[in-house]
């Protein structure tokens, strides 16, 4: 297992190289540039800008500089926000996105797994139908609809909660976390239910039952572990995405997270910022997927690496 983990950690380096190179290539061929505006700039000013940011240099010089920056973990200055470094943007936005993402996912896990397990145990009962209908509601109600609806009720009708903005650990977090977790809650509930149904009918559970274990022990000690495999598979990418920011919720609730920056960086062709966020995101994806693969072995002892 240790060797497996080490190997996977080493893979991060070539992966990162591939990801940033591809991204860099995409930015280069994308139409438009970071300095264009409603009024076209005079040629001389355009030339000044290109010289200032080294865009007049041959492509391999620019590519080399980008790779060197990535290797050093210092992505340089944003093009859109002169004087602001990409690292400082990551440092200020990451805590916000991470807080939001982790809280939302924890909530989703707790509610989703509980609801999914109960639904599976009482398949085709009212509890099952009710929780699955609620889950389906969560999925078919996009967060850009759910968020404003919650705001309208809790912030604008009853004035119970603030409608938007970031204020650390406070009441401000409630609505965005709820909005963000709804869809994941629903996904997890449904994946848990189907995974559990599969497992509950499998032989080893029958054996466990036959051995005379209590239903409680069967479920908690045996079924849950196997039944959660789909949830585990889903969790790696989901967490990586959540932590690197979710633009819709950030915009609705005016939160200073990474997602908003990332979308705007793409729209603004802000190369250093895109590269920085992508590098961070790919590391997050790799680490979380590694965690998932390690968790597989825990959840299902039959899986060996």
């Amino acid at each position: 297992m240790a060797r497996f983990i080490l190997r996977r950690l080493l893979v991060i380096v070539p992966m990162l190289l591939v990801v940033v190179s591809l991204t860099w290539g995409l930015i280069r061929v994308a139409p438009g540039n970071f300095y264009s505006g409603e009024k076209k700039l005079p040629a001389a000013i355009e030339k000044n800008i290109r010289e200032k940011y080294g865009l007049d240099k041959p492509w391999y010089v620019q590519y080399g500089r980008m790779l060197a920056n990535t290797a050093r973990g210092d992505f340089g200055e944003s093009l859109k926000y002169p004087g602001t470094t990409v690292n400082s943007i990551l440092a200020t936005t990451l805590p916000v996105s991470a807080t939001l993402g982790i809280l939302a996912y924890l909530l989703a896990l707790v509610v989703g797994i509980t609801a999914g397990t109960i639904a599976a145990l009482k398949q085709n009962s009212r509890v099952d139908y009710a929780s699955m209908a609620a889950a389906m509601l969560g999925i078919s109600m996009p967060n850009f609809v759910l968020g404003p609806t919650l705001v309208l009720l809790f912030a604008l009708r009853w004035y119970w909660l603030p409608p938007a903005r970031w204020d650390g650990f406070s009441l401000h977090l409630i609505l965005p976390v709820l909005t963000l977790s709804a869809v994941y809650m629903a996904y997890i509930a449904r994946l848990t239910r189907s995974g559990m149904l599969e497992v509950l009918r499998s032989n080893y559970i029958r054996t466990a039952r036959a051995k005379g274990l209590t239903e409680r022990d069967v479920v908690v000690r045996h079924a849950v572990r196997g039944g959660l495999l789909p949830v585990v598979s889903f969790s790696g990418p989901a967490l990586a995405f959540l932590i690197s920011g979710t633009v819709v919720v950030e915009r609705i609730f005016a939160l200073p997270g990474l997602g908003n920056y990332f979308i705007n960086a793409n729209l603004n062709r802000d190369e250093p910022l895109i590269i920085g966020i992508v590098a961070f995101m790919s590391i997050a994806v790799l680490l979380f997927n590694l965690l998932v693969d390690v968790a597989y072995a825990f959840f299902d002892p039959r899986i060996r690496y």
Binding site: M15, V19, T23, V29, P31, N266, V285
Partner: peptide, 26 residues
């Protein structure tokens, strides 16, 4: 498995918006 799944990880990490913008441009 290793190769395929790392490929999937790369695809997860590439900025999707940029891909779409470039696809559209070409």
């Amino acid at each position: 498995d290793e190769a395929i799944m790392r490929g999937v990880d790369v695809l997860y990490s590439i900025p999707y918006m940029m891909v779409v913008i470039v696809l559209l441009a070409f």
